[in-house]
């Protein structure tokens, strides 16, 4: 069996080597595919903080993904139409600057996670799943009916947004940005796991009564985890929108929430690189199998079934021979 950190290193190396090779042999589409994997991985890393470490099975994380996407879409739309964005009493201009868009995406999704978390964390188990799903559907139908920003058709952004000092129109620099942000999110999750907060959150998932009897409040711990989780997924939404130069209500769809969960389960729940491995496999299957058959999801389903039945620790569990993320 292989130590998890070696697998992680290989995965990371693969994410560097494959796009670099694609750049050399001039296959920009491969770089775009890799970017898609990295962005989905980032969204799933966000969810993994809530789901894997906190034990919060959110079937509504597409809310944050969509909010990040629309934060990008709306700001860039106003920038490209030169129409100011009206926020009630005052107006601001749109922007094409990625750092500002990212910040807005993070703040908006964190605030949404705070509000949704405050309401939904009172419940647990299947009720939590349902209430997060309900929030997801609310946002989804709101986006469909929001005609100012394209309604059902979504919003197209003509040019990718700017990052100081980089030509983001080329696939490689944009991939580099996404990979850097993914690494930052992984470092964030890793440091959280080692921190007092991570210890308490981990315990709150396994034995909430115990956490209460030592004088800590499990609900507050979960709320903070949910907010951090939502913020990371929101950032991924902004990148996803920039990758496609398009946002639409499907970013809010419950299928997307479900896919994020599937990515994590395939890779390994609660494991640092679980979502990364899951996202890579997902994109590879989507591309290769998708070229062979329109029904590639069936095969994804088979893989998911096999993993749930025979490899509870996901691919990482299978490779390391350890079912849980711990010890």
């Amino acid at each position: 069996m292989i130590a998890e950190r070696y697998i992680n290193a290989v995965v990371l190396l693969g994410l560097l080597v494959v796009p670099s090779y694609a750049l050399m042999v001039d296959e920009p589409f491969t770089i775009t595919l890799a970017t898609r994997a990295v962005v989905l991985a980032l969204a799933a890393v966000g969810l993994n903080i809530a789901l894997g470490t906190g034990g919060l099975v959110s079937l509504g994380h597409a809310v944050f993904f969509g909010l990040g996407g629309y934060a990008m879409g709306i700001l860039a739309f106003h920038a490209q139409t030169y129409a100011p964005l009206s926020l009630g009493i005052f107006e601001i201009g749109g922007t094409k600057s990625m750092p500002i868009i990212w910040l807005v995406a993070i703040v908006v999704s964190a605030l949404a996670a705070l509000a949704i978390g405050l309401l939904s964390l009172r419940t647990s188990g299947v009720y939590f799943i349902m209430i997060t799903l309900a929030f997801g559907q609310m946002f989804y139908y709101f986006a469909i009916s929001w005609s100012a920003y394209g309604g059902e058709d979504g919003l197209s952004i003509y040019l990718r947004n700017d990052f100081p000092g980089l030509n983001t129109l080329q696939p490689m620099p944009f991939f580099g940005l996404c990979l850097a942000l993914l690494c930052l999110a992984l470092i964030l999750h890793w440091r959280l796991l080692l921190s007092p907060f991570g210890l308490a959150l981990n315990a709150a998932r396994q034995a909430p009564q115990r956490v209460e009897t030592v004088g800590l409040n499990p609900m507050r711990l979960r709320l903070v985890a949910f907010v951090i989780s939502g913020a990371v997924t929101g950032l991924a939404g902004a990148l996803f929108a920039d990758l496609n130069r398009f946002v639409s209500p499907t970013m809010f769809s419950w299928q997307l929430s479900g896919e994020l969960i599937v990515l994590i389960i395939i890779g390994g729940v609660g494991r640092l690189f679980g979502p990364v491995l899951g996202a890579i496999l997902f994109v590879v299957l989507e591309h290769w199998l998708g070229a062979v058959t329109d029904f590639w999801h069936v095969w994804l389903g088979v893989i998911l079934l096999l993993i749930v039945l025979f490899a509870r620790g996901g691919l990482l569990g299978l490779l390391t021979g350890k079912e849980g993320p711990h010890v």
């Binding site: 440091r191 959280l192 080692l194 921190s195 007092p196 907060f197 991570g198 210890l199 308490a200 981990n202 315990a203 115990r210 956490v211 030592v214 004088g215 800590l216 711990l221 903070v224």
Partner: peptide, 21 residues
């Protein structure tokens, strides 16, 4: 880790996100 959780409860400082427990 289980007793550290108790110590953490006693300290009343579970919110350090970036220090190693």
């Amino acid at each position: 880790e289980n007793v550290l959780l108790g110590a953490l409860g006693h300290s009343g400082k579970p919110w350090r996100l970036f220090r190693k427990v």
